[in-house]
Design a protein around this nucleic acid. Structure first.
Length: 425
DNA sequence: TCTGGGGTCCTAGGACCC
DNA sequence: TCTGGGGTCCTAGGACCC
């Protein structure tokens, strides 16, 4: 096994930090970002965490007095902005390591194996400063012999003020003393279930986990758990995934801003999600042949509940929107029951393969027919150039009563000319 | 009044085949 | 009391990630 070296770069409180870049007034203030429909807090600035608010808190449960007293600023999530800022960070990181895995919107793994002769902590500091200078965003960087150890190093970098946002576990003189301070629940790959199980069995920290018997781990936590243990011991088992793998399934669904009762409204919403899902499919040059539609009432409310789903197979794999829209309408009409207050519908595409491998049909038109591909390409081109939803399908509706709530949305500063930030004279 | 959305991987068990 | 062995594919459910 080759001796590897990875860095994990993670943006601090990413969504909140993005909002701060464009509104300097937010500096030092508690900032919270909401989920779709302005439901729960999904991202918090340090100041907000310090007030005892946690991720997942429904916004209506936050005491209004607290909000006023500390001037807490709450925003709807602005994924257009965050996505664009993320791309800028990743582009910056590319300059520092040829092998990079974009792991999530705010995290990337870098392979530094070839640079091990350098002072990696100093190198990481340089990365950190450059990202901050070029994008305005603060990042933390952890370095380790495996991705799991880099994650742990990042965890340390974030929490120890002395680290200046960088922690190198690879050259640390006493790795065990660090692992010993990490609770198993903070180890990458250990969720609430496994964390519970481990604690019940006297395995409380990362060091103990690294020494747990392999057979027992595999029995209880499958091969994934075993991999985690090996990674903690410095054996790299989880490869850097540099190429973005095409998705195996694409889900598009959202909760409604308010309960929806009419089939017609549900049809509009489902059509609109379907549109977006098939658009994503085309972005990846894929085709799908399985479609699933589901709907559900609000399980948090004390009222009649109903949830159902149904799948359908397309005769041939496709990425031609109308093929899916027809089916969505059919399925939804089949599973809809009147008399309920619905919270959510969703559309899922699966059985996805590359468009280049889609089978042809001698007697029926397929997605690969020129005309269909041209229409879709034209549609996508227009929407890319003129903005989302410039050209759409009538079935997505005009009124869209079901649209999600976004009452505290900031402008699309970096992706829309109208929203360019203005400098006050 | 108000509780997110979008993914992945692994395993067990059943159907089916020779 | 007895009821092969081995393989693949599919699905549902459970765990995890951000």
């Amino acid at each position: 096994m080759k001796n590897e070296c990875f860095a994990l770069v993670d943006c601090n409180n990413f969504y909140a930090a993005c909002e701060r870049v464009f509104d300097p007034e937010l500096a030092g203030k508690p900032v919270g970002i909401l989920s779709n429909n302005d439901g729960i807090i999904v991202a918090l600035s340090r100041e907000l965490k310090e007030l005892g608010i946690t991720r997942g808190t429904p916004v209506f449960k936050i005491d209004p007095h607290l909000i006023r007293k500390h001037d807490i600023r709450i925003f709807s999530s602005n994924y257009t902005l965050y996505g664009d800022m993320s791309a800028r960070v990743m582009k910056t990181l590319c300059q520092f390591a040829p092998d990079l895995e974009v792991y999530s919107i705010d995290e990337a793994f870098l392979r530094l194996t070839a640079l091990r002769h350098l002072n990696l902590a100093a190198y990481a500091l340089e990365i950190r400063e450059t990202v901050n200078r070029w994008t305005g965003l603060p990042v933390s960087i952890g370095i380790g012999a495996t991705k799991t150890l880099a994650k742990i190093a990042n965890h340390v970098a974030k929490r120890s003020p002395a680290s200046q946002g960088v922690f190198d576990l690879l050259s640390h003189p006493n790795r065990d003393s660090i692992l010993e301070k990490i609770d198993v629940k903070d180890v990458w790959g250990v969720g609430p279930r496994y964390s519970n199980l481990l604690h019940r069995n006297g395995i409380n920290n990362a060091l103990q986990l690294s020494r747990a018997p392999a057979g027992w781990i595999q029995e209880k936590m499958t091969i994934m758990g075993l991999r985690t243990v090996m990674e903690l011991n410095g054996t790299a088992c989880i490869e850097l995934e540099m190429a973005v793998e095409p998705k195996q399934e694409i889900v598009s669904s959202k909760s409604f801003g308010q309960p929806v009762t009419e089939l017609a409204d549900l049809q509009e919403a489902a059509s609109s999600y379907c549109l977006r899902a098939v658009e994503k499919l085309r972005e990846e040059q894929q085709v799908a042949s399985q479609l699933m539609v589901y709907l559900t009432t609000n399980r948090f409310r004390d009222e009649p509940q109903y949830a159902n789903f149904e799948s359908a197979h397309l005769p041939l794999p496709s990425a031609y929107t109308p093929d899916f829209l027809h089916l969505v309408r059919q399925i939804l009409a089949g599973i809809y029951r009147p008399g309920y207050r619905y919270k959510k519908v969703g559309v899922m595409l699966s059985d996805i393969i590359p468009a280049s491998k889609a089978p042809l049909d001698l007697f029926a038109p397929t997605y690969l027919d020129d005309r269909r591909q041209t229409i879709m390409a034209c549609l996508d081109g227009l929407n890319r150039k003129m903005g989302m939803h410039t050209v759409t399908y009538a079935s997505t509706g005009r009124e869209q009563h079901w649209q999600m709530k976004r009452e505290h949305l900031t402008p699309h500063y970096t992706t829309s000319w109208q929203d360019l930030p203005r400098v006050k004279a």
